[in-house]
Nucleic acid binder design. Sequence first.
DNA 1: TTGACATAGTTAGCCAGCTAATTATAATGA
DNA 2: TCATTATAATTAGCTGGCTAACTATGTCAA
Lengths: 167, 167
Amino acid sequence: MLQLKDLPTPDVLAKFAIRYPDADVTAVSSVLQLLRVATDLSIALDACLSKHGLLQGRWWVLILLMREENKTSQPSILAEKAGVTRATMTGLLDGLEQSGLIARVLAKEDRRTVLINLTDAGVGKLDSVMPDYYRRIRCCMQGLDEEQRQQLQKILALINLGIPALT
Amino acid sequence: MLQLKDLPTPDVLAKFAIRYPDADVTAVSSVLQLLRVATDLSIALDACLSKHGLLQGRWWVLILLMREENKTSQPSILAEKAGVTRATMTGLLDGLEQSGLIARVLAKEDRRTVLINLTDAGVGKLDSVMPDYYRRIRCCMQGLDEEQRQQLQKILALINLGIPALT
DNA sequence: TTGACATAGTTAGCCAGCTAATTATAATGA
DNA sequence: TCATTATAATTAGCTGGCTAACTATGTCAA
């Protein structure tokens, strides 16, 4: 995702709206600001993860495993939940296995499947990352009171409703 | 950016909040939903661009040039405004030049700089993409009235304030 | 039983970002 | 003046996504 450092000023938007009458100025500026804030957030959180030697993809796999009762799952399920292809998940798991944060174990009941285990080292890694990560999220949301957080969630849900119609 | 298909349910969040007391549950769920909606939006808009044979990076360069009075700029300035490195901008411009949408012209006053011109074909490409793009944005924001759009912008600005403190 | 199909995971190769090093030109100060 | 430093753009090589093709295993119906 691009960082969109230079959002259009109102007069630039207005000029584009003259050339392209389909433009809904307040919709466009809202969407661009939304994309921009999300990108900046994502970059800032990436920086936090990389301080701990992690990238977003691998970190998310650790979280997904941590959610499981027995800290175990399968590559295809992890891929689905993380929103990446199975090929990409293979690569993520390769990296995590090399770092000793997960272990691959062959399943007995179906020899096609591989079970992915979060190791103690993996749990330890999360225990060192998550407090830092959560502290940062708390910090950047501290300017919003509970009502504003609910407003945000409601508005995001409304936008989300419109997304399927785009495809 | 990951697609985050599987956001934590409230009870998963609560369990994590027990292990990691720094977690601010409503902050975390707001941020995750924000990232998720933004990613989905970005993916949907990418799909729109790719129908027209464009990728986000190249398309954004065309827009930046279109904003200029004389439809001209420089690689380093474009890189800064698009939030990519100059090396990446070189690659984006290579692609656009091959498609004939921009032209490189050597500057006379400083022979280190290259002037980038949006060609007529480049303008034509924007003229075919933008109406479609704007129509989609209008469509996904149509569920929000003017007041909600303003609320969103205000809330995003508040979050944005907190981001610098993260780094 | 066995041939067709489905599923799990991996491999190979592409692409668009990135950093670091390189080339060419300009600006500056002893 | 000319050595040093700064700047503009590019090139080379890395990485983590992707798609498509492949291997191995399981399922199911004729």
